[in-house]
Design a binder for these strands. Structure first.
Lengths: 357, 357
DNA sequence: CTCTGGCACTCAACTGGGCAGAGTGCCAGA
DNA sequence: TCTGGCACTCTGCCCAGTTGAGTGCCAGAG
């Protein structure tokens, strides 16, 4: 058992692994995952040695398989059937056996070209999600750039009727939020202009969460008669900021779910149901680390309906920090290296596009 | 054959019906449709007379069935199986045998209450589509109020950098569209204010399609030095108006498709694909008459993937005219009276809500 | 100690026959 | 014109037998 000394806390085995996984056994697991992902059928020892030159006989492979099964990495549906990887097996595969498959140069060009055609933020998100669904042939999810990390580009006040205003908040990511404001009394143009100027002067460029602190003392700077109107506007503005958690999500590629009717005949329903719940999707993406790519396999997903799916997600953003997440949802039996490559590439390019605009 | 004299062009029979459909035969067809919708299984003569008191024997019903089959209203999957309605049979049912089932008072209250909680246009549409999906247990589609019929409530110009503006268009339906404008040269605050005032003065309250005509001569009223900037802004504004066809649609209830795995095991895919194509959905709703409810059954749908589904749709709007469409998509074997009742009720209440806000 | 070939065993999947049941069409009679 | 009876036709289901892929185990070679 040479060169297996790396400590690896991610191996989910609770007892310290009695049988230190040697190279060949890992190679067998890798081959099983690859074959199973390709054929969608349990893979047997004989087929394995035929398709991969492991340099050993089927009997040897069988011994390794027995060991892998005992450790919970693979599993056989019934005696005298081939093996399929367990969630734990996929986990090991992703952590130690697979490399993210980089996109080819033409693919990268195509991604970039497709995203560059976008005209506004909605379009960027729409194109991204379609692209991701097409590249991975799975269900793609893209979160709109969050308000949390964004900064104020402009705050606009528009008088609709004497007592009714429209408040428009524009962020540096191009997102626009508007709200109606019902003021207690009429608001003159002069006050409106003054308020507009001070709002933008004080809050312009601020991170959104900091805005309430920055503007806290604003009403004090106005005539007592105007303060209630100012406070009303501020209240609505803060409410808008607080509603950042009402974040939007775009979805594409649900038709790809039917590619797995093979063993997905019934389990497609809970997945569709989950996809309709923005809350579930948001939580799903919320569990994504900011910069590193996150892979949640099968039962690692908190939401029960997604127990037979895997989620590959990553943050993206303009500049160096992530402002939102995106990812794909597919069967646990997915092409992890390819999917991770596509997700990473798309996230990078969206970030670039956002930074440019 | 009494009281069957109404001329009915919608009967798809090409040759003038040799056998004038008498009352009982129609009753049999109605019973077949109702039973089949309920049980999802071919319905035989014996079961029919047991469940509906037709006052005749199975043998008689069999004769009627044979006639109905010859005329193409029903069809048997194989000899010695029950009958199922054809698209033509459903058509006759919808046109002449079914009455729209009105919602009960509690249902109406629930609808109204649910929709009244909405805070903005997005929320109205989101709530409507969810509600419709839940009421009909099918896939619901709601189109955003179209820009075509809307009027200008306000146009706002915001200076972001000396040469970069943001144009915000607010319609009376609460929809907000924003676009960036890159001006050829710097634009001062004075010009901006002037332009803003004139835009709103001239175009405020106009129907959107009329705006270009109304504003056509606007640049001529400005200093020659400012005209190129004004023209640029107008160009972007007109472009925004022209992009009304890029209409948005919201969807819900796709998980309901799986309720029909009974015989929908494979045909769910084309439906999901169709649902992902905004263009297809828009065309689908576009075929809806403005005021009357439209029902398209099976092959009556132009889009091939929806050949085994029916679409029930209707226009809705604030006030007396329709500004957009909504509808549901389900299997041809659907509860037409109930679905039509729900669609009609929801459309009415959304209209009311929009008129109030 | 590790790998290999051989062997017996297991079990899902396919096949074909037989049976039951639902439903039909047709015909003679009320 | 409707009804009851009758023979017929299918599908769906159950049952058994067979096939084949795949396994576990073991003894022997390196």
């Amino acid at each position: 058992m040479p060169d297996d000394g790396k400590p690896d806390g991610r191996l989910l085995d609770t007892r310290p692994s009695v049988r230190p996984l040697d190279e060949r056994r890992l190679a067998v697991l890798r081959a099983i995952v690859q074959d199973y992902v390709g054929t969608e059928e349990p893979v047997g020892s004989k087929a394995l040695v035929e398709r991969h030159n492991l340099g050993v006989s089927p009997a040897t492979v069988r011994n390794d398989m027995a060991a892998l099964e005992e450790d919970g990495f693979i599993h056989q549906p019934h005696t005298s059937a081939g093996r399929i990887p367990t969630d734990k097996g996929y986990r090991l595969f992703v952590d130690r056996l697979a490399e993210v498959k980089p996109m080819t140069a033409p693919e990268r060009r195509a991604i970039r070209h497709f995203l560059e055609g976008a005209v506004d933020l909605d379009d960027v998100v729409a194109r991204t999600v379609r692209l991701l669904a097409q590249l991975t042939r799975q269900v793609a999810v893209v979160q709109y750039p969050s308000l949390t990390r964004s900064t104020v580009r402009h705050i606009e006040l528009v008088s609709l009727t004497p007592t009714k205003l429209m408040l428009v908040l524009i962020t540096n990511t191009g997102r626009v939020e508007q709200r109606m404001v019902d003021c207690p009394g009429p608001v003159g143009e002069a006050l409106l202009g003054d308020l507009r100027a001070r709002l933008n002067g004080m809050a312009g460029g601020c991170r959104l969460p900091e805005v309430p602190t920055v503007l806290e003392d604003l009403p004090a700077g106005f005539e007592p008669a105007d303060r209630s109107a100012v406070s009303t506007v501020l209240a609505v503005l803060f409410e808008t900021l607080a509603e950042q958690n009402e974040e939007r999500i775009m979805l594409a590629g649900t038709a790809n779910l039917t590619r797995f009717n093979h063993d997905f005949p019934l389990s497609i329903r809970p997945v569709l149901e989950a996809l309709e719940e923005q809350v579930v999707l948001l939580r799903l993406l919320g569990e994504t680390g900011d910069s590193a790519m996150t892979v949640r396999i099968g039962h690692e997903n908190a939401y029960e309906g997604l127990n037979s799916t895997s989620v590959v997600s990553v943050g993206y953003g303009s500049g160096d920090q992530s402002v939102a997440k995106l990812g794909v949802i597919g069967p646990t039996r997915m092409d992890y290296p390819g999917t991770m490559g596509a997700v990473r590439a798309v996230a990078r390019y969206v970030g670039q596009i956002l930074a440019e605009s």
